[in-house]
């Protein structure tokens, strides 16, 4: 027996509302644009981004050969930006999945079990939330060494607790609802109940958190790379900025500085827009207000 009374919206409604939301639409478009770049990187008039070019094309401005100019090894900035989007999106998504998964698991268990388990888990969460995030990331990255996967691990370690806390409070409020009581009376065990009734209702929170995590990861990667703690052998937007800053030629090569900054900013904006839209839609009353 399933009780659907509390399910939020039908999927169709959700998407309809999403696309009529101006921010949602804009964010989604920008996001699709970057996905497109990342997927079709090899055929977007790119050259392999790591391979150095010829000596007479070092630090040339944008022209017909290199749309966005070249860097200090005569590598094509356009190709670096395009392939860099893959790195940013991949580490963004991987980190989001890891943190949301861990956070949800901890939140579910804590919220559902309650008592001493809850107390211990929440103290751990509190502890992690108390730590200053960027300094912790920097310290971990410095200690663990520069590699793209270490960056993922570092950001994950620092970021999972907020999801755990949100999921837990969601679970707590769901637990009080009559329909959960009802199934419990019918003798469903914890696991079944968690999977079939609680989890689906936690999805919106997970989704919003996931979106937030992607933005935070892209941001954190760029900061760590800028500070010289990124993976210098992988071309990402952050390492592009780092190399530019290190080269000493930043002031005279705007075509090299601006593209990665513009990309970081627009991708983060797109996710912020997505997040705002989803939050708005999931806010009780929005549906009625918009007349669905």
């Amino acid at each position: 027996m399933r009780v659907n009374s509390y399910k939020l919206q039908k999927a169709g409604d959700f998407w309809a509302m999403f696309f009529s939301h101006r921010m949602g639409r804009t964010g989604f478009l920008i996001f699709c644009f970057f996905i497109f770049l990342a997927l079709f990187a090899p055929i977007l008039r790119t050259v392999p981004p790591e391979i150095s070019g010829s000596a007479d094309r070092i630090l040339t401005g944008p022209d017909g050969i290199s749309w966005l100019g070249t860097d200090d090894l005569a590598r094509d900035v356009w190709s670096q930006v395009i392939f860099g989007s893959r790195v940013s999106l991949i580490i963004g998504f991987v980190t989001a999945i890891i943190t949301v998964f861990t956070g949800t698991l901890v939140g579910l268990v804590a919220g559902f079990k309650g008592g001493i388990v809850d107390e211990i888990l929440m103290r751990i969460v509190d502890f992690f939330m108390m730590l200053p995030h960027l300094p912790l990331m920097i310290v971990l990255a410095a200690v663990m060494g520069a590699s793209i996967w270490n960056i993922v691990i570092v950001i994950s370690i620092v970021s999972w607790p907020s999801t755990a806390r949100l999921v837990r409070s969601q679970v707590l409020s769901l637990k009080e609802r009559p329909f959960v009581e009802a199934i419990r009376c019918l003798g469903a065990n914890d696991i079944t109940m968690m999977m079939s009734e609680i989890l689906p209702n936690v999805f919106p929170v997970m989704f919003a958190q996931g979106v937030l995590m992607v933005t935070e990861t892209i941001y954190a990667e760029s900061v760590l790379s800028f500070l010289g703690l990124g993976d210098p052998t992988t071309i990402s937007w952050g390492t592009m900025l780092h190399f530019c800053f290190e080269s000493g030629a930043m002031a005279r090569s705007p075509w090299w500085v601006f593209p990665p900054i513009v990309c970081i900013v627009s991708l983060i904006i797109s996710f912020s827009f997505l997040g705002t839209a989803v939050t708005d839609i999931l806010t009780p009353g929005y549906k009625e207000k918009m007349g669905y």
């Binding site: 790591e50 391979i51 150095s52 200090d72 090894l73 520069a146 010289g228 210098p232 052998t233 190399f243 290190e246 080269s247 000493g248």
Partner: peptide
């Protein structure tokens, strides 16, 4: 990793050795 010119030189050396069939991993 801290000296731009050395990073560049190492990158190019790795490329050139790759051309003769020696795989070089940069450890910056």
């Amino acid at each position: 990793a801290d000296v731009s010119e050395e990073v560049k030189a190492a990158t190019i050396i790795a490329e050139m050795l790759g051309d003769v069939g020696i795989d070089v991993q940069l450890k910056l």
